[in-house]
């Protein structure tokens, strides 16, 4: 049961909750069919997991689906050194622009259909996602954090670090396959 509850216990959502992505295959499918994708990274992407750093997985995901990365985290320099499609901008600011139907994205090439979140403090993601859920309903949101984010359209369930790394590894493999 705890697997599908908000990770922070008091962050109870409204009446619509995220659908859980149980398997990496589903995450891969959602991303492949995600249209123009923006990946929003928080400072937590600098976390080193047992095999690789979280950042490595995320850059792989972004590359595989030709996504743009938006971040104001300390990982920006590293991301930018590996990916030209990256912009230093705060997650809140980017979310503020998304509901504008005239906004053409950070690269000026068009609106985003899907936004992926990872690495921000849990409650910040929770809040940004409720903003998008209510004011940018045409955008699909996916949380790849290891905690259930009820305000996303799709979210992973609560899991431990080992399970999470396995999930990310499998996701990258599926996307590259």
């Amino acid at each position: 049961m705890w697997r599908s509850e908000p990770w922070m216990k008091a962050e109870v959502p409204g009446t619509r909750r995220a659908t859980i992505i149980e398997k990496p295959e589903l995450a891969a499918e959602l991303l492949k069919q995600g249209g123009r994708i923006l990946v929003v990274c928080g400072n937590g992407v600098s976390t080193v997991l047992s095999k690789r750093s979280l950042l490595d997985y995320i850059v792989d995901v972004a590359e595989a689906v030709d996504a743009h990365i938006a971040t104001s985290s300390m990982a920006y320099a590293k991301i930018k050194s590996r990916l030209t499609n990256a912009t230093w901008i705060s997650p809140m600011e980017v979310a503020h622009r998304v509901p504008d139907p005239e906004w053409m994205g950070l690269d000026g090439k068009g609106a985003y259909k899907t936004m992926v979140f990872i690495g921000l403090p849990y409650y910040m993601t929770w809040l940004i996602l409720t903003g998008l859920k209510n004011f940018a309903q045409s955008v699909k949101t996916i949380s790849l954090d290891r905690f259930y984010q009820p305000n996303a359209s799709w979210s992973l369930r609560n899991m431990n670090i080992g399970e999470w790394e396995q999930f990310l590894e499998a996701l990258v493999n599926k996307l590259k396959a």
Partner: peptide
Amino acid sequence: YRPFYMPFCEL
């Protein structure tokens, strides 16, 4: 400076 709302409670 337009508001960006993040409903902390949706009810």
